[in-house]
């Protein structure tokens, strides 16, 4: 008999996640091209500099909508409780897979929750400064130069988070990505990573 699986992410949640994920990667590629002359060739993936410049804000709009949906979908699960703070204190053991010393997490662990909040903040910075840079004729030079600095700075944070997020979700913790692809995880994975959460059980 097949092991029953647990429901972790709905179809809508997964769509929203991947819209944000894919658009962010494209935005990062074109954005790095604009920020680093040596990487200007990356604009080729969208058909050259002018096309990349035209598409970057449009793809950015999709990213912005995705971010807002994501925030609305997940915000109520993202407030830290006492055990989350204990989890953060024991983050060293989490990273070294020293399971017995890690306080039990709920549907999301404290790291994921902090990731959510920082990423939401970066999302706001992206949307506001991106909007300014999209319509430069409406704003003064001082605003635009500041917006450009902030937009770049947010990208650096976002880029670093993307690397960590992808590494942890795929290579470091096998079975995690499955939750975001199929929407289901194994009970063993859930018990190990999110003991205080037991999803809606589904049979395979």
């Amino acid at each position: 008999m097949a092991t029953p699986l647990l429901h972790r992410f709905s179809f809508f949640e997964r769509i929203v996640h991947w819209v944000v994920g894919v658009t962010f990667v494209v935005l990062l590629a074109t954005g790095l091209a604009f920020a680093y002359p040596a990487l200007f060739w990356l604009t080729t993936v969208l058909g050259g500099g002018a096309a990349a410049r035209a598409l970057h804000p449009q793809i950015g709009s999709l990213f912005g909508v995705g971010m807002l949906c994501m925030f609305g979908l997940w915000v109520r699960d993202m407030f830290l409780d006492g055990q989350d703070r204990a989890w953060l204190g024991a983050i060293k053991h989490y990273v070294t897979h020293d399971r017995d010393k890690v306080p039990p997490a709920g549907k999301y662990n404290a790291g994921q929750k902090l990731f959510f909040w920082v990423q939401s903040l970066l999302g706001i910075v992206f949307i506001v400064t991106g909007g300014l840079l999209w319509f430069p004729e409406l704003f003064g030079a001082a605003w635009l130069n500041t917006a450009r600095l902030l937009h770049y700075a947010a990208t650096l944070g976002g880029g670093l988070f993307l690397i960590v997020h992808v590494y942890l979700g795929t290579i470091a913790y096998p079975g995690t990505a499955r939750g975001m692809i199929e929407g289901k995880v194994t009970p063993a994975w859930a018990k190990l990573h999110h003991p205080r959460w037991s999803g809606d059980r589904v049979d395979r």
């Binding site: 897979h97 670093l160 690397i163 290579i171 913790y173 096998p174 194994t186």
Partner: peptide
């Protein structure tokens, strides 16, 4: 730094063993 840290973590600690999360 992000890429290197992930790689160092991979070499030093490695993935969680599959049987733990299977």
């Amino acid at each position: 730094f992000g890429v290197i840290s992930a790689f160092v973590h991979f070499l030093a600690v490695g993935p969680e063993s599959p049987e733990e999360s299977a």
